[in-house]
């Protein structure tokens, strides 16, 4: 993956956010490794994952930042919102408090990303039906009200995990096709086939790179 011609056309940057213990890292792991990690240690700061997917016969590389849920890390994790094309906002269907905090996560996301950022709400741990505290309908209403994509998923069984990541990518790609997403802006979290190695990240260090003309 490191050398040779690029085997993808776009890079999309994602962030995964939500309260601690809702399963953000496990969702990422399920998506990149197709495996469930029974118990993974809490994330410190951010962790990085990547996978190439295909949308409309276009190869797209996802750069995914999995953020730590603890409030104390917020100062650090906030810097990763900028330039995210997709945000996966996760709560735990078996813990109502994680659902109740969604509005503050949403505020953060709206404030720190750009208007074209696709936000996907994920109700994780859908396999734990017996201890459910948040109904599907309630969350669905919340998502509709705020214009979010929504699905219940399970990092354990893998149910809907793939779909959430792919659907987000499809939406982003649709924005590109519609011309709503400006590929020349580093803020969008999308990057067309890199013309040079220097253009592999999307936002933070744009100024350190040289020309970025994608025409």
């Amino acid at each position: 993956m490191s050398a040779g011609p690029y085997n993808y056309s776009y890079i999309f940057k994602y962030i995964i956010i939500g309260d601690m213990g809702v399963g953000k890292s496990c969702l990422l792991h399920q998506f990149t490794e197709k495996k469930f990690m029974a118990s993974c240690p809490h994330t410190i700061g951010v962790e990085f994952g990547t996978r190439i997917i295909e949308v409309d016969k276009q190869k797209i590389k996802l750069q995914i930042w999995d953020t730590a849920g603890q409030e104390r890390f917020r100062a650090v994790t906030r810097s990763y919102y900028r330039g995210a094309a997709g945000a996966l906002m996760v709560y735990d269907i078996t813990r109502r408090s994680t659902y109740n905090h969604l509005s503050s996560w949403l505020t953060d996301t709206r404030n720190l990303t750009n208007p074209s950022t696709v936000i996907f709400l994920i109700g994780n741990k859908s396999d734990l039906e017996s201890t459910r505290e948040v109904t599907y309908e309630e969350a669905k209403n919340f998502a509709d009200e705020h214009g979010l994509l929504f699905a219940e998923a399970s990092a354990m069984t893998g149910q809907n995990v793939e779909e959430a990541f792919l659907e987000t990518a499809r939406k982003i790609y649709q924005s590109i096709k519609d011309g709503r997403l400006d590929l020349n802006s580093s803020e969008t979290g999308v990057q067309h086939k890199p013309a040079q190695p220097g253009r592999t990240t999307l936002s933070n260090d744009a100024q350190t790179n040289k020309e970025n003309c994608f025409c």
């Binding site: 700061g45 650090v76 810097s79 190695p197 220097g198 592999t200 990240t201 999307l202 933070n204 260090d205 350190t208 790179n209």
Partner: peptide, 8 residues
């Protein structure tokens, strides 16, 4: 720097 890796 070239590859956009931030120390943080």
């Amino acid at each position: 720097q070239l590859h956009g890796v931030d120390y943080l």
